[in-house]
Nucleic acid binder design. Structure first.
Length: 997
RNA sequence: GGGCGGUUAGCUCAGCGGUAGAGCACUACGUUGACAUCGUAGUGGCCACUGGUUCGAUCCCAGUACCGCCCACCA
């Protein structure tokens, strides 16, 4: 049955994909030869919520290319697949789904029920992206699919937490953290995007207490006085007026002469019945604004540091949703206590945190509404540093003076949650941290020493820079979907301080608690893990974890200690940070762990170098004292054809599945490989994908031609190149060997683009453009059998070499041609060498193709009809040229459309052709336009003259001859000789034309 | 403000001390024994700018301009 005219991607991909899955071609170790090296890649786990986008398609194409290449080479290969539970993202999606379907909200249904919903959702749609990976042709070990919340993963995560806790690498503390008021959770620094927005800065007066005043002197840069006045206030500036309610002080720089006299004095905090001190601190910049800064320790990272240094109380103003607090006692009570504390009364951190110093008026207001209210109220008090401004009415054009609160419009950098897109609030809360400073060392050393290599090299600089300045990593999240922190809190009771217990299992924790409480009680203790309801009952909320919990006395005289588990979950990146060992079965010492770890290569987006790569490095080194991967390949974001980021709002998102539907997975994969140059930007153009689809068609049809000519008939697949006699066969065998070497070298160096390029040029430029054409006459000649064998071999090699990049079409072709022992996916990668290259065959073919090019070019320019066969005259011919002609006559004649070749002189009205060692004439009396031929030859002469000029110039420069390497000089000399030879021939031809007039 | 990268044909990108490359687009011709998802032949480049190193620079170095990305607490 003859082959179809075109590759049917849609049906072939479905058929081949299921064939591969049935045969488990991607199973760990499949096609491995005994004693071969291991090669392993961990897939960057996509979010279970996700679907395949172009970044995934690109990233996974590269991984699959490497995996298939190594697998075909007989290496013991593992491509570990799996998905990430993606805490915030998944919780967000499920909450949205619930809202859409009118189900009760997360809070209404409670933690347990909500988590059941998430699992339900995960089970029903979590497989989407896995199936999409299959459509791309990814050859993972599907049976090993992992999930960061399943299998051994929860245990592994818990064990790591407990170990790190016990080593003092994880600690809990009340810190100022980035708080997302939408998701009501802390997030890490990395999850905050600082974006420049149009903002405002207000200037307020804080009046000195007791009606005091001072002389304020402003000087210019030269020290000359430019302003001198008595002031009873200090001027401060802020972009966030609502936070002034929590101010603890006003700070000025110690060297700032303007305020030296009032440092230590108190000022009235507007809108609040509190006095705060003016303090000196290095932080304020005297040259910026008024030089005085209000200090709100609980709502600003800089102020927090100042407050810590000065021992100022940290007054929290907002609740978890970013509304002004409405909890706790009334304002009067709170402010009275705050005054006592200011006067020196002892107060614990948690007591201060419990104080709600938001005046009643603002309580419950959204932070932005509170901002407006505070500004309005301060303005009403006349405490805005205001200025008379001339306002022009845009309609009447009349001018009038207004007194406006002094507000500058300016660009400010504002922090936004990368998921929620709401403004992040610095918030004082209890959180868990990894003491990264303690584990960063080995991660730095591993890259410095080259144990782990990051490509491109610029990635290493980024990596170093971040790790050298690393901040503690906030790993607790106030979410429900995730790995719950394995810490339980015991009550303060029976003369014992409350205590936290960290353990891998509830039993471990129970034992620890028994030991702690039991030693005192000397009686049996039942440790129970109470429910949320229990805590609701005894009135302990989230913030009450340290408070006395519960201890109940049972009737029989024993005591029941109730421990409460920390409700927080871990940052998703904490668990995905363990992906390499976790997926291999750790903490069990599995065979896979022994074989495939450390993994060979990580291919991932440069955007998650900090989130993931650096953390995997730190975590793996901290936990198993080994690097997670030897090579890290970082790539950029896939952009659209114009270089724009793909985004839904821009409407320029290219869906890889639509591309696969339209052009086939192979075309997309080839395009991905072709644009994967190291460090470049990735601009994806569908025109380019179409081009590579065409490339597939081209290969398909070359095979179709071969099949029609029965090249595979009677031959089983041969791995060794056939012995060839015909120059064209020798040549294409050599070209195949060169291509193999190029592809190997390219993939070795992660130059997917060069591998793709080499294959494209070989298959299209050599095999299809020349070899198939040569084969046509050869099939009718004495070398027919050899040519068939050669063509079968060359096309087999083409399929093999292309398979890692274009697996579907090559597997399909493999099945439709020849008798095959194995599927192509498991066929051995060839090992032939460059000694298959025959230099004399190479030279001869380049002479022949050069001659054909010249003749074709001349014919076209002279408007010789394509179908017209010409007789050609050899005017001069060297022995070498004569021999080359002799061996390739049939090919040249056919491709150049030459009828006969005779010896002779150039007749009147002929086209002249000059090549190395020979000159020819195509008699076309009456057919050609002499003027046109003259122009053609002149143009060629001009080009030659320019080249000759350049070459002569170099040779005439004594410095060049003296300093340049000998081979370069020689090359220039031989080059010049050849060009001169051609020029002579062309001159002769031109002279002849001149004679004819 | 700091760091990194880019600037090569109309477009998207390779290249790299020794005569500028590919794909797409464009022009002309073409039902040539696989392929119109094609063939043949062409058009098209002061390789951003200015200096320096060198026998020789698109390539190395320094600076300038423009563009992009990452990081950063100026109230």
């Amino acid at each position: 049955m003859p082959m179809e005219k075109n590759f049917d991607a849609a049906s072939a991909e479905a058929r081949i994909s299921s064939l591969w899955q049935e045969r488990k071609v991607g199973a760990a170790g499949a096609n491995a030869r005994a004693g071969s090296p291991a090669f392993s890649i961990m897939i960057p786990p996509p979010n279970v919520t996700g679907s395949l986008h172009m970044g995934h398609a690109f990233n996974n194409t590269l991984q699959d290319i490497l995996i298939r290449w190594h697998r075909m080479r007989g290496h013991d290969t593992l491509w570990q697949v799996g998905t990430d539970h993606a805490g915030i993202a998944t919780q967000m999606v499920v909450e949205r789904e619930l809202a859409k379907s009118g189900a009760p909200s997360r809070r209404d249904m409670g933690r347990e029920a909500f988590l059941a919903k998430v699992w339900e959702w995960k089970d029903q749609s979590g497989g989407t992206i896995i199936n999409q990976l299959k459509r791309l042709g990814a050859s993972c070990d599907w049976d090993r699919e992992a999930f960061t919340m399943s299998g051994n993963f929860p245990d592994a995560v818990t064990k790591v937490f407990v170990d790190m806790y016990n080593k003092g690498l994880i600690y809990r503390g009340k810190r100022l953290v980035n708080w997302d008021p939408h998701f009501e959770t802390a997030i890490s620094d990395l999850e905050v995007e600082n974006i420049e927005v149009a903002g405002h800065m207000w200037h307020f007066k804080y009046l000195l207490a007791g009606g005091e005043s001072y002389e304020y002197i402003e000087r210019d840069a030269e020290g000359a006085v430019i302003l001198r006045e008595r002031r009873d206030y200090i001027s401060i500036a802020t972009t966030r007026p609502e936070t002034m309610l929590g101010d603890g002080a006003v700070a000025v720089h110690p060297s700032d002469a303007r305020y030296a006299a009032i440092v230590g004095k108190m000022v009235h905090l507007p809108l609040c019945d509190r006095l705060i001190p003016i303090i000196a601190d290095e932080y304020p910049d005297p040259t910026f604004g008024s030089g005085a800064v209000k200090i709100t320790g609980a709502h600003d990272f800089n102020d927090y540091q100042v407050a810590k240094r000065a021992g100022l109380p940290l007054y929290r103003l907002m609740d978890t949703r970013g509304h002004m607090r409405s909890d706790g006692a009334g304002y009067d009570v709170a402010v009275a206590r705050a005054r006592e504390i200011a006067a020196g009364a002892e107060a614990t951190e948690s007591e201060i945190d419990a104080l709600n110093l938001v005046p009643e008026k603002y309580r419950g207001m959204d932070r932005f509404a509170a901002r407006d209210a505070v500004v309005a109220d301060i303005n009403a008090l006349g405490l805005c540093v205001s200025t008379l401004m001339t306002e022009i009415d845009p309609e009447t054009g009349s001018e009038h003076l207004t007194r406006e609160p002094y507000v500058e419009s300016k660009k400010i950098m504002q922090p936004f949650g990368d998921r929620s897109k709401v403004v992040i609030e610095p918030m004082l809360t209890d959180q868990w941290f990894v003491d990264t400073a303690k584990i960063v060392g080995p991660a730095l050393d591993a890259v410095r020493s080259g144990a782990t290599k990051i490509m491109p090299e610029s990635g290493e600089k980024t990596y170093f820079h971040w790790l050298e300045n690393i901040e503690p990593w906030c790993i607790s999240r106030q979410l429900w979907w995730g790995h719950q922190i394995p810490v339980w809190y015991g009550p303060t009771s029976l003369n014992l301080a409350g205590k936290e217990f960290c353990g891998a299992t509830e039993q471990d924790v129970a034992n620890e608690a028994k030991a702690y409480y039991g030693n005192i009680l000397k009686t049996e203790i039942n440790v129970e893990f109470p429910s949320e309801e229990f805590f609701a009952e005894i009135g302990v909320g989230d913030d009450g974890r340290d408070a006395a919990m519960a201890i109940s006395f049972n009737e029989n005289g024993s005591h029941t200690i109730r421990l409460r588990r920390d409700p927080d979950v871990l940052d998703t990146w904490f668990s995905s940070g363990l992906w390499p060992i976790g997926t291999l079965g750790w903490p069990d010492q599995t065979d896979e762990l022994a074989k495939y770890f450390p993994t060979s290569t990580l291919i991932t987006g440069a955007d998650i170098i900090f989130f993931w790569v650096a953390r995997m490095m730190m975590m793996q080194l901290a936990v198993v004292d080994d690097i997670p991967f030897k090579t890290v390949y970082l790539h950029g974001l896939v952009r659209d054809a114009k270089g724009k980021k793909m985004s839904k709002s821009l409407g320029n998102v290219i869906d890889p599945l639509e591309i696969i539907d339209e052009f086939g997975a192979d075309a997309l994969r080839f395009a991905n490989a072709a644009m994967a140059s190291l460090g470049g930007t990735l601009k994806l153009d569908t025109a380019r994908i179409a081009g590579y689809r065409n490339f597939g068609t081209k290969l398909w049809n070359a095979c179709r031609f071969a099949e029609m000519n029965g090249v595979w008939e009677g031959h089983s697949t041969e791995t060794a190149a056939p012995a060839a006699h015909a120059t064209a066969n020798k040549w294409i065998i050599g070209e195949t060997a060169k291509t193999l070497a190029e592809v190997n070298a390219a993939l070795e160096g992660y130059r997917f683009d060069q591998a793709a390029d080499a294959l494209y040029k070989f298959v299209w430029g050599k095999v299809c453009d020349w070899y198939v054409e040569f084969a046509k006459p050869l099939f009718d000649g004495p070398d027919a059998n050899e040519t068939r064998k050669t063509m079968a071999w060359v096309l087999d090699q083409s399929m093999i070499l292309l398979h890692p990049i274009m697996p579907f079409i090559t597997e399909d072709l493999w099945g439709q041609t020849g008798a095959r022992a194995k599927l192509l996916v498991h066929t051995d990668w060839p090992e032939f060498r460059l000694d298959l290259v025959d230099p004399s065959a190479d030279q001869e073919m380049s002479w022949a193709t050069g001659l054909i090019d010249e003749i074709r070019s001349a014919r076209t320019q002279m408007h010789v009809p394509v179908g017209l066969k010409l007789d050609m005259i050899a005017v001069t011919m060297s022995d070498a040229a004569r021999a080359a002609w002799g061996r390739n006559e049939v090919l040249i004649k056919r491709l150049a459309r030459i009828e006969t070749l005779t010896q002779g002189t150039s007749p009147k009205g002929a086209i002249s052709i000059a090549v190395e060692g020979a000159s020819f004439a195509l008699p076309l009396d009456g057919v050609i336009d002499i003027a046109e031929e003259k122009a053609r030859l002149s143009k060629a002469m001009d080009k030659l003259a320019k080249e000759i000029g350049g070459l002569m110039g170099r040779l005439n420069n004594p410095a060049f001859v003296a300093s340049a390497p000998e081979e370069v000089v020689d090359e220039v000399r031989t080059n010049l000789e050849a060009r001169n030879d051609e020029a002579t021939k062309l001159t002769l031809a031109l002279n002849r034309l001149a004679e004819m007039g």
